[in-house]
Design a binder for these strands. Structure first.
Lengths: 343, 343
DNA sequence: CCTTTACTTTTACGCGCGTAAAAATTTAAT
DNA sequence: ATTAAATTTTTACGCGCGTAAAAGTAAAGG
């Protein structure tokens, strides 16, 4: 094992008996060299475990193998899960994922994109903050770097968008709730931070009107991304006030619902479908924790496996084609009703 | 604005009227140049918004400004939060954080470290998987790259360790539980995946013996990191079996407790301190969701703000000193009892 | 004013690899 | 076997910046 002296590609070319340009070609794309050559390289690779210098490698490449993944909030389990999913696809496709969280901050979001720019990524998968986003600067970024948006759309920004059909999913649960009890009021933040909130609000209103019911928005105060806290605090207030117009609340997202359920529990309200229950609560997203709430949370699951797969695939074909999308494809996946005990 | 033609440091040196080596020095450390020079550079920087090529910049530097942050699991809110904290410190100190999750997989953990190696990081902050970790290879990595361990210790690996004092924190809650009711049984996984589980087990046994009680371990089956699911499934079984030796359960971590609480709720058991309650449940970690469980979860909070700060600071001084630690410092922070309604 | 010290400029080289072009070689096809 | 096509080797240059050494210039201190 004289592997300690392989310091660069030249050294490795010597010991493997292959010329350096071919080695370089191999690392750029193993399938671009003859099969017999590839085998010889890989045999040498096992013996000497050389890996090319990351910085020198990317300096002169037209395109790196880096793919940026930007999500609105790192410690939100929903986004963490979808990021993990996307990351796996990116790795499997031979790219190098770089995951960045914007922590609910538009400035941080732009800074993340600027940092990605330095890394010269082959492409970026961006779940933007949405309403809060600095869309002009995001558009400028998308102009320079092939970017596929997911989770939250910004009109005409990026090469494509992949997400959930909020009208379908909200419609689904509104119909379900109307069919099985009182029409729901919509529990949300007045100035919501999360990406799809406004879409869901209008989807709720439309669904209610379609079914011949009067929409009722309960728009609570609160800033930031501590949705459980807001759901709990404002939920407690709303319940204590006894001003609820209905016994059924549809929350804009599961995290609000989790806080609201906690508030209801502490106020001694029984939540659920039974005769002894005085409140029904439903959410949206099928948050990882929604199956462990008390009672378990009825919600709509987003098909985030499909979303992650489609977003990644779209970017890969874009990267391979080495050109921009002809048309901006928008793919929306249906939500699925997850009936549990809370409504 | 003829800013479009600044392609490299030479161009920027021309337009700013400063020599390239000085510009280079500035980007390496803005405080290393004379104040008047720095101001001239920064004025030019505003006009031309040049940023040095990331790859060329790092290729020949002895030390990059990159700092790796590796955590056991990305979508565990506890780890996501502590990572976010550490990340902020790293950014604030002028370094470039790169956060990687090992997804509970020791191979992935090693791969993360190998990927970091390519990036030639100035240092690494590593929260290892613990028992599952390939400690030999981690030690080999720490030999090459200054690394501070946090959250979970591996004996004599890395330059320092910063974490929680499990004996103190488990002792704290065991004492509390004993003082206010029946001595607790310890609810945990037989082969736990999470880092500190074994430490907590022995801490529980010692605390019980110190207080003159017989320890009782309830070691349930289950693999992987889906702790809520395991807590729920095995909790349901344990409750249904009616073989519980006591009415008080201390869980090895909050995520197990969250599942267990859900199981108790569904079986109609009232959990808490009241006379009408038949079970007390406590956890450990003060998981972000533990204040929204029903009932809210009594637990021990880890001082992860201090842990993150101390770990980061330790690494920074290490990096600045440009040498290895004389002695391997171990810093343990006390847990704090968080009394809520479940016990 | 001069000296000391601190900083900047000039000059020059090299890092490790991407990549282009021409020549040499291997493989596939006729 | 002959030709054409595909691949590899040889040779050579450049990317953008780090960095070292020597020479020049500015600031500080008396």
């Amino acid at each position: 094992m004289s592997d300690s002296k392989i310091k660069n590609m030249d050294d490795f070319a010597s010991v493997s008996g292959i010329s350096r340009p071919t080695i370089s070609k191999y690392f750029n794309d193993p399938d671009s060299v003859r099969k017999s050559t590839r085998e010889r390289i890989e045999k040498a690779l096992e013996l000497y475990d050389y890996r090319p210098n990351f910085y020198a490698m990317n300096q002169n490449r037209r395109l790196t193998k880096n793919v940026g993944i930007v999500i609105p909030y790192m410690s939100d389990p929903f986004f963490a899960e979808i990021a993990r999913n996307v990351e796996n696809h990116v790795s499997a496709a031979g790219f190098r994922p770089i995951v960045l969280g914007s922590q609910g901050n538009p400035d941080q979001e732009i800074e993340n994109l600027n940092n990605l720019r330095l890394i010269k990524p082959a492409g970026v998968l961006l779940a933007p903050l949405g309403r809060m986003s600095d869309s002009d600067r995001i558009a400028a970024f998308c102009n320079d770097v092939p970017t596929v948006l997911f989770d939250a759309n910004i009109e005409n920004v990026g090469e494509a968008f992949v997400g959930s059909d909020n009208h379908q999913s909200i419609g689904l649960i509104v119909e379900y709730l109307c069919r099985t009890g009182e029409p729901p009021a919509f529990f949300e933040m007045l100035t919501p931070a999360n990406p799809n909130a406004l879409k869901r609000r209008s989807a709720y209103v439309q669904a209610m009107e379609r079914l011949g019911h009067k929409p009722h928005l309960i728009q609570v105060k609160g800033e930031g991304w501590d949705f459980e806290e807001i759901g709990f605090r404002e939920g407690s207030r709303v319940i204590a006030d006894r001003t609820l117009p209905t016994d059924t609340l549809l929350c804009s997202n599961d995290r609000l619902a989790i806080g609201l359920l906690s508030a209801a529990y502490q106020q001694g309200l029984r939540v659920g479908l039974g005769d002894d229950c005085t409140l029904r609560i439903a959410g949206h997203d099928d948050h990882p924790f929604s199956r462990y709430t008390c009672p378990t949370l009825t919600t709509v699951s987003q098909d985030y496996t499909s979303i992650a797969t489609k977003a990644a695939e779209t970017l890969f074909t874009l990267i391979e084609s080495e050109q921009r999308a002809q048309i901006r494809e928008v793919t929306l996946y249906d939500g699925r009703l997850v009936m549990r005990d809370s409504a």
